[in-house]
Design a protein around this nucleic acid. Structure first.
Lengths: 122, 122
DNA sequence: ATTATATATGAATAGTTGTTCAAGTGTTTA
DNA sequence: TAAACACTTGAACAACTATTCATATATAAT
């Protein structure tokens, strides 16, 4: 009694010791897995995925993206800042208009691969 | 004055009409993009990505995963439920032990592709 | 210079989410 | 039958996040 915390260790840990050790050895390092989760977190939002998908076709300015997604410029701009911080998009200025484009060739591949999964779910 | 809401339409929409229309035509449908974002949202958490990565190597029971990730069984169990709802993992029962394994062959491909991006960021 | 346009940004708010805690189910062992 | 074990689950709480609103900046047009 008094043990409110769920236990972490159990008999299985001993029984399956070899498996657990093998898996542990094959796991990428903590930092890589953290970074990978961060990358997918960026993709895990409808607005951002629409922006990124649009940019796979053509560079676009903020207000065109806003019009395309039917959202305010402010909302789009906030998300573009996040995407730029994640180094997924870059921008160039032309007068008062700012054009955004993809900053990474892998994005499209990751999306296509993910879409295969989505489509198979029926 | 009185217009507090950010405008959505602007001159660019007309100037870049062809581009916007082209991009709109090439975008996947709303539902697919939503599902894709949902998929990436599941990947966008360190705990879940560790679980999934571990399961790419071997099926494992709940307490072994808890031990491997140094987390409570409860926390792992909650996440496994979510992963099962997303049809990313399946399970089989052997006595009182429940073994989880991957339910999708694409997961590994998506992870590897994502990892390429992560590693390139330096 | 003044006004309009395109974009950026800080603060606030509402909604979402991951973990913990406590209590539950079902199976096995003593 | 009782206790131990592996796991599940609901509620609560804290942390995070996406959008909105208001305002600011920079460039262009008048």
């Amino acid at each position: 009694m008094g043990e409110s915390l769920d236990r972490i260790r159990c008999d299985c840990n001993v029984i399956h010791e070899d498996t657990v050790n093998k898996v542990k050895a094959l796991m990428p390092d903590e930092e890589s897995l953290y970074d990978l989760a961060e990358l997918f977190k960026v993709f895990g939002d409808t607005t951002r995925i629409k922006i990124l998908w649009a940019l796979t076709e053509s560079e676009m300015c903020v207000c065109d993206l806003a019009f395309l997604l039917n959202m305010t410029q402010s909302a789009i701009s906030h998300q573009l800042r996040l995407l730029k911080q994640s180094r997924l998009v870059k921008n160039r200025k032309e007068g008062k208009v700012v054009f955004y484009s993809l900053d990474d060739g892998h994005i499209e591949k990751i999306f296509k691969q993910g879409m295969i999964h989505v489509k198979e779910q029926g």
